[in-house]
Write a protein that binds this DNA or RNA. Sequence first.
DNA 1: AACGAAAATAAAAACGTTTTTATTTGTAAT
DNA 2: ATTACAAATAAAAACGTTTTTATTTTCGTT
Lengths: 354, 354
Amino acid sequence: MAETEASVRRTPPTIKTLADLTGYSIATISKALRDSPVVAQATKDAIFKAAQDIGYQANARGMALRTGKTYQAAVLMPVTAVRDYEWDGVEYTQILSGISQALEGSDYRISVHVIRDTQDGCDMARRIMDQGLADGIIFSGILADDPRIDLLVESGFPFVSLGRCRKPLVYAHVDIDNEWAAFAATQRLIAGGHRRIALINPQRPLSYAMDRIDGFTRAFGEAGFETPTDLIAEGDLSTRFGRESTLELLQRAEPPTAFICINESTTLGVLSGLGSLGLQAGTDIDVIAYDDINVSAYFTPPITTFYQPIEVLGRTLGQFLLQRMAGGDPQMLRQVFRPTLIERQPDNLGARPA
Amino acid sequence: MAETEASVRRTPPTIKTLADLTGYSIATISKALRDSPVVAQATKDAIFKAAQDIGYQANARGMALRTGKTYQAAVLMPVTAVRDYEWDGVEYTQILSGISQALEGSDYRISVHVIRDTQDGCDMARRIMDQGLADGIIFSGILADDPRIDLLVESGFPFVSLGRCRKPLVYAHVDIDNEWAAFAATQRLIAGGHRRIALINPQRPLSYAMDRIDGFTRAFGEAGFETPTDLIAEGDLSTRFGRESTLELLQRAEPPTAFICINESTTLGVLSGLGSLGLQAGTDIDVIAYDDINVSAYFTPPITTFYQPIEVLGRTLGQFLLQRMAGGDPQMLRQVFRPTLIERQPDNLGARPA
DNA sequence: AACGAAAATAAAAACGTTTTTATTTGTAAT
DNA sequence: ATTACAAATAAAAACGTTTTTATTTTCGTT
């Protein structure tokens, strides 16, 4: 019944194993491993070495029970309707990758919770809080008035949102400067001679949809023109929506001469719609898009875009959440990114004689 | 110091709370809640009711510590290089959504672990096993000889793979019939008069890359032609790879007259390459693609594809993992899907005079 | 009426930590 | 040499479960 290498390997080493091995008590071991100042340096060294030798890894479940922490960062991942899936160009994978990078080295892991709508997201946030399913939450798809933000701000639970609501609350967030991006795109097209510009936009309750409309409107205002509000199309981010909006808008009495697209899935739809009508972007109609996944260079023709690598947003989300869970002041944890313009077309067809 | 509603609400109810409330012991409560046959029906009813009333939710950490289970299903999510992100059309979001649907109602949650390469994936799988980070694993990107499958099969740890390795091992898996899909696409193009067909394929160590080459080869073999192995391009799944392969292949002495593309990101690249050369799919060159995200209908022109809703794969993965974690026989947990052909072009340009 | 077996419930131990409290050891001051 | 105090370590309790073992209750048999 010798305690062979194999029989030892059966069950992973615990603090108790270390205690038996080194002769110290489990209390001392625990403190030493957490680098507590009350234990002598010499003993710490001995314990660290022993831990190293036997490959000790703290049992997450034991820690979790005692401390009440889960070492889980929850990410609420929105998912569109199941039936008849349509691509919406939302690369959550990239966001998760960014968050994961930020969490690397920490003891936190990512747990993903799929949500179907805002109500679902609100329920899930509450459950995560009440049941202690995670120590912090990251979520996106923020509404102008978002119940999740109200809930979490009030309770003080650590979270970071991708996007801002329109209430003057203080909370950690990461966002794209959508107002500016829409303003800049619109201004560019106006400078190119366009007056009838279509905005392919997400649905209104989404906060950033409103931000974009604001920027769109401001550009026309500053140029001294009236905003063509009749050319704002609102829908999901699917390719189908882009296509159908295009077909509908172009058969109007006063059709648009240019399009601004919310992301590349809708852009693909717009190009598809144009193709069906025998029109070509850059030749017959100007198109400017926002690009999350760096794909607009491969459209035919390549499209002028505002590009923001989405992984960077993810990384910042993760960093902020770590700081927030460590008790950081949300006031300090706010960042708004401006995407960079990548010119691929002159976008000045508006100056051409109709 | 009355125990007001508010003061009670401070800390969530535990089994102890229920014990005090109902007068039963915590052992009885625990068994009752797990619907054990040893406790009388009447007491069960009383305890269920009390639990309902105070909104008792079992503490996951306590359960985890005692049972050694984590109630986590780990998903290894591969992520491409960070610098200069290129879209690869892999909609992991859809896979996660499918898995999540399958896990709904169970006590399991999804934890996502980002991995950068196969070695990383192997390390992570080992850590998940050794440290008990999860009760089961799902992963993809299977190599012809995949060390993760060897490792997990040997240790008996529950897992389901998206894809099959080429070793005759028994393990739970979900896959697409890539050999058949490549065969069918090639056969269709050969029937359309093509002999010089390019295959835009993933890199060789990937099992399904080899499956596709097999199908490609079989189609030529059955038709009595030699396989144009010089027209097989191997690379990542990025749009850039699709474009660059196209440009390179078409300036060969004997260029291809048709393309088979591995997914829609490469397809977009191929179309971009064709556009740069002044060529049009469906007019100058035939293109058949595999479509995971239902977007090929929106290319200009729409492309014939083999479509397999990826969410279905995810759902099956989740179902299989649940069964596997419950001790199910892996022999029974194997499914291979055949994508459905969606014809959008005649694909018979090969019969045209050169 | 007493016994034994079965049914129902209670008590206690265990999972692996952290933290609070207690004890031992070492050292300087009397 | 004794005392006081700090430093270092050990012991014990606690987190919320599940499971094994022990005890009590019920009920049919003799």
